[in-house]
Design a protein around this nucleic acid. Sequence first.
DNA 1: GTGGTCTAGACCACC
DNA 2: GTGGTCTAGACCACA
Lengths: 126, 126, 126, 126
Amino acid sequence: MFIIQTKDDTPVYVQLQHQVLDYIALGILKKDDQLPSVRTLSKELGINPNTVAKAYSNLELHGYVYSIPAKGVFVKSENVTDLVYEQKLEELKTKMRDCKNVGIEKEKILDLVDKVYEEVDEYVEG
Amino acid sequence: MFIIQTKDDTPVYVQLQHQVLDYIALGILKKDDQLPSVRTLSKELGINPNTVAKAYSNLELHGYVYSIPAKGVFVKSENVTDLVYEQKLEELKTKMRDCKNVGIEKEKILDLVDKVYEEVDEYVEG
Amino acid sequence: MFIIQTKDDTPVYVQLQHQVLDYIALGILKKDDQLPSVRTLSKELGINPNTVAKAYSNLELHGYVYSIPAKGVFVKSENVTDLVYEQKLEELKTKMRDCKNVGIEKEKILDLVDKVYEEVDEYVEG
Amino acid sequence: MFIIQTKDDTPVYVQLQHQVLDYIALGILKKDDQLPSVRTLSKELGINPNTVAKAYSNLELHGYVYSIPAKGVFVKSENVTDLVYEQKLEELKTKMRDCKNVGIEKEKILDLVDKVYEEVDEYVEG
DNA sequence: GTGGTCTAGACCACC
DNA sequence: GTGGTCTAGACCACA
């Protein structure tokens, strides 16, 4: 269910956080669903339990999940969708402004949008 | 001329590199123009001289500038434009895929493009 | 009769112990009164039977209750009052010192005392 | 400057957080003051660097300090006082209600306040 | 079995 | 030198 890119320079625990959030936004993880246990997931991904724990702990601090000691970690709310959308769009906007500032034309961007949305995606298409 | 965002999580020397490249792409810095000296710039920005030196050295390694000892650092070529374009578009594509993967519709993206390209930007307009 | 705060960070079995003691101190539970059975209470509160058992067992170890196998658990003595008082006051003193140490004035504390003792409390009034 | 109570059951990193906050509230640590480095403090207290780092990281998440990688960790604002006051008083209130609920009289509490505020405190007096 | 905490020590990028 | 990340593995309280 989760994938870690070791080549990526973004920290492992951050990758995990993002993926959990994305799954909530997509509706795959729903309110009160239990996340995989720290131990299970760490073995599955071949990473240290502490790293998983850190990701979960951060998600809890931000209010996306809640943890009951000796029980597990659970999804707090399913209405994260809007928040995730906003964040992603905000990041996209920053990058887009960057493109505009170096003189890239609007049409190039529009072409890119078409290209990306024509791509077949494993999650959407199956 | 250069701006450092300490809040930003991207390293200072990387920010510098990007800005130099952007100025070249925009034609503000032209072939054989001299970059500010390491000392001057480090004082002006209130950062460590090593950091400026690292940025310049990296730019030289990538062939964007050349340095003449005891003289200074100069812009090598003004045809960086395409390279910069490609990089920016590639980053934008990644973010855009990300948006698509969490279920954001194409229309939302198109709206964002319109919005960004309607904005008045100090670098473009002023 | 008993209430469990899952939000609270204090363990469930400790909450139970405190509540039993409080009810004894208040005179609601008297000498030789029977406590609810482990099964009954665990179902009623939706918690693990082991947790209830642990609370009862601890209370027995401290001499507040006695258990008759195949019969139930009973209140041993009603003179727990002083012990409970002392414990509560000791905890309060610690917190109060803490307040003093960060510079909170005595008057603020006195105001708080007035405020708390003016409150209408369901256990006292109802 | 900092003291760790190993006997205490409260986690070491929490103790550290509290103490940093208290020092800010007392005005001993002021805006932009640098906290002791992770390594230094861990050696001084005989605890693991990670534990100190966790405390600092939590404080940063809550907005009390800011960290500049390769520079250090610094106090963000000196106006934490009110926040700390509120928290402490809130905790005290909870404990006080507890006392009231088991039937402790108001006068006993008032006596306790007098007692605590007559005590000589090393930070205030010495 | 669960999460929470902590130690011991490593490597990295950065200043 | 600094903080940030991660591994490897331990112990604990709790359900």
